[in-house]
Amino acid sequence: MEGDQNQDLLYQPLPQHISEEKEKLGLKELDCPKDKFVESFLERHIQNFKPSEKKDLKKSYLLLDLPYRQKPTVAKKKTTLNSREKREKKVYDIPPEHQKYSLYVPLHKLWLQYIKDHLQLTPTSNLTLLQKKMLKADVHGALVTVCKSRCPAYVGLTGIILQETKNVFKIITKDDKLKTVPKANSVFSVEFEGLRAKIYGNHFCMRSARRASKKFKMPMKNPTIDL
């Protein structure tokens, strides 16, 4: 209500006793545009007013009847853990009780079913089409063997992939050992349905979710298969 009153006051015409005495008070109607008035006002009242400063005058008009109130910023609550918290809480670690090969054999069987459906395997399927589909396939549960590696210690490791991260496969071997094998500089071979796929780890270093949406350029021009 007070705002309304103020508004009324702002836009009301001059009171009668002043408007009658206009000539005496020296008040004149504005006969020039508002900008020119402001400039001339400033020239008269500011010492050493330079003409170049005129250009710096911001021509923004404050509307006094609608005051701007800043909303207080509410912090958005993050629902995910950052990687330090993940590592502390060991979210992605597999506990020793669960590191048994026999537990994951059903997972592997499930994966075989999945890959059969995903690739739509028929005796006459085109291998290049299979390749393209295989690139987008999920490898969790696949039985994989390291057939070539720049580090000879990794060669020959066979197991079921339990986790796939950006750079690494976590594999469980038949001896119930959880091995972390870097993808880089290694060649992996996956066998299913009488077919063998060779995965060149150097080109596979990305998160599995990202890999599903990435377009691999075929034929690969720049990357080499030399380890």
Partner: peptide
């Protein structure tokens, strides 16, 4: 051959 052999040398 060395990369496929898997023996340390």
């Amino acid at each position: 051959t060395y990369e496929e052999l898997g023996l340390v040398g």
